[in-house]
Amino acid sequence: MDNLGFVLGASAIGAGLAMIAGLGPGIGEGICGGKAVEAIGRQPEASGAITRQMIIGDALAETTGLYSLIVALLLMYANPFIGQLK
């Protein structure tokens, strides 16, 4: 197997592995949404404020997932390892 093929294949696997980090934000947003529904159930009149806070919480929980997405995108479109072959 030539080096380029190996690097490309390993990069594709790495991009896939990086996206496993999507688990964390998924769980976090699930907890966040569940708690928000609980809070609205207890205090329906505060639903506007709770929803606003929930969306901010979701956005913050999402950040780690986006970092992994950036890594995966780098491996897919701007692979830094190919340049090191030469």
Partner: peptide, 10 residues
Amino acid sequence: ALRLFGNNVS
């Protein structure tokens, strides 16, 4: 910056 970028580019 990365949040907005990541969400749209994904």
